[in-house]
Amino acid sequence: MSRFAVTHTTTYRYQSTVSSSYGQACLLPRSSPEQSVISAALTVQPQPAHMTTRVDAFGNLVSYIEVREPHQLLEVTATSEVDIVRPQIQFLPAVQESLAEARRKLVELEAVERVEAARFLTASSRVPLDDQVRNYALASIVEDRPVFDFIRNLTERINSDFTFDSSATTVTSTIADLFERGGGVCQDFAHLAVGCLRSAGLPARYVSGYLETFPPAGQPKLIGADVSHAWAAVLIPGAGWVNCDPTNNQFADDRYVTTAWGRDYDDVTPVKGVIYSNGGMTQLSVSVDVHRIVPDQQQPQ
């Protein structure tokens, strides 16, 4: 088990004074079978006139924020502590069944699970199931090979075919942009993975969260130097949702903290909204700190 303290601060600096700001944040971590949330809080500066947090259609925590105090700096900070225990999925028998079998077993799911799965099966606004995506997926699809091999192969291919290049894409980039530029960031990789998994007939989610990172050898870990992360999760009947990370070419383990999931980025946008001002530039900065802590009640072994 791992326990993490996560601090995620989003800061907007405005050139001209903003009279009011209305937005929503999807920054508080959700609970799942692999993750228990010990504490979580969202703070906003200046003090919001109104703030409420609700559970959205996917079970994520979404906060509505209304700030009406004139400001030139808006700071949204989410802090949380979570415990994570993830199974080693390669040892689950279900993932060793064939892709065809996994797909077939979807129809045998309980009604509620089946309905939940259906929403992640089709194209969504940021994940088209077009020829480009289908053809890319085809190279990994072998119907009678274990579904685990399919997922691993797909993850590997995305990782090697595309370079990690934060200058290649933006938050609004499409999968087509990723293909065109040959590079992108975790968001783009995750979208492509989700698209390929869906075009193979498997339900797939886009997951937002964090990954514990380590400083280069011999250097101290710097506060706030982490980043928010995104990956894909695919439903394998009998094994549950399997999280795979094409950006780092690995399956998610205890170092992955989940914030939210949805059909794609648009369902889990960290912060979005509108401001009222007389124009001018906005400067955005994000600082993330994922800090491993030793739980009080647990003795180090």
């Binding site: 259609a57 089946r114 309905v115 259906a118 929403r119 099966l121 089709t122």
Partner: peptide, 17 residues
């Protein structure tokens, strides 16, 4: 079928609940 619902252009997940 769940899929037809998900694919309805005017199904707004923002209205769930």
């Amino acid at each position: 079928p769940a899929q037809w619902l998900e694919d309805s252009a005017n199904f707004r997940t923002e209205c769930c609940g």
